[in-house]
């Protein structure tokens, strides 16, 4: 297979992947975010403690997550038809991809939001803040860097899932690697596809980390995974006073120097 033969195939596959993953990621974030927050709020000791709701939502999320993606796709066929009017092609793949990714992201959101210090919630409540205020002014902004990291993870996972979307004729890079590279022994094409995927994922991860890092003012490395090189740069400047808000080094020492809580 020559490059001129491969090129249009690759181009089409790239666009298909981008299309499917883009839409399903957007839907997953929009759906997973409230679900994850709900899981935290209704949990024992939460602002809206409600064991029944928490257990039901938790179980639904667990079941959805335990479903192998390919089975989910088949199981959702009639639902997909009802929504997008077809069961084949990229549009049809978006539905199961999004449905599969919502619980995935919801669990990640739950973990991120749970990390937020309960004292902050209490502080806002003591100011007369409602539950909605707590969510909007505390839980989401404080966990934002972590939420972005989680979204990055979700997008990367979706790219992996999208390879299976080939079963409904949705195309995409993963599908190309399977059909041409594996089934037709076009080894060269397969490796090119894999290389493209690797580069795409590296770029997404880099962008996600950068965004998470830029939004974190915490002065601690807990929220988002940082790039080793960038971090090393930050550490070497420790000791000097921090001239910019983004600088993460000096205050970290103050944080850890505080005595632990004496209740």
């Amino acid at each position: 297979m020559t490059w001129s033969e491969m090129e249009p195939l690759l181009e089409q596959a790239c666009w298909d992947t981008l299309y499917m993953v883009g839409w399903s990621a957007l839907i997953a974030v929009l759906g997973g975010l409230p679900l994850g927050v709900l899981l935290v709020l209704t949990d024992r000791g939460g602002v809206l403690q409600n064991v029944v709701v928490n257990k039901v939502v938790g179980q639904v999320v667990n079941i959805a997550r335990s479903m192998p993606f390919i089975i989910l796709m088949v199981a959702l066929i009639s639902f997909t038809r009802a929504i997008v009017g077809t069961t084949i092609g990229p549009e049809a793949a978006i539905v199961p991809l999004a449905i599969g990714a919502i619980p995935f992201y919801a669990r990640l959101v739950e973990t991120s939001v749970r990390e937020v210090d309960g004292g902050l919630v209490e502080a806002v409540q003591s100011m007369g803040g409602s539950t909605w205020t707590v969510v909007r002014k505390v839980l989401l902004p404080e966990s934002l860097p972590s939420l972005i990291s989680s979204a990055t993870t979700t997008v990367v996972a979706l790219i992996g899932y999208s390879a299976m979307a080939g079963t409904v004729g949705a195309g995409g890079l993963g599908d190309l690697a399977v059909r041409y590279g594996y089934l037709r022994f076009e080894t060269k094409l397969m490796w090119i596809t894999v290389a493209i995927l690797a580069v795409v994922i590296a770029i997404i991860q880099f962008a996600g980390d950068l965004a998470a890092r830029g939004l974190s003012h915490r002065g601690r490395s807990s929220a988002a995974p940082r790039l080793v090189l960038l971090r090393r740069g930050g550490v070497s400047r420790a000791g000097k006073p921090a001239p910019e808000p983004e600088r993460q080094d000096a205050p970290a020492e103050i944080e850890t120097a505080e005595p632990t809580k004496v209740p």
Binding site: M127, E142, G219, K261
Partner: peptide, 15 residues
């Protein structure tokens, strides 16, 4: 909202 409260661990929003 008419009662101010100050905390041991400050509870300021880091963001």
């Amino acid at each position: 909202s008419r009662i101010g409260m100050v905390f041991q661990h400050f509870n300021l929003l880091s963001s």
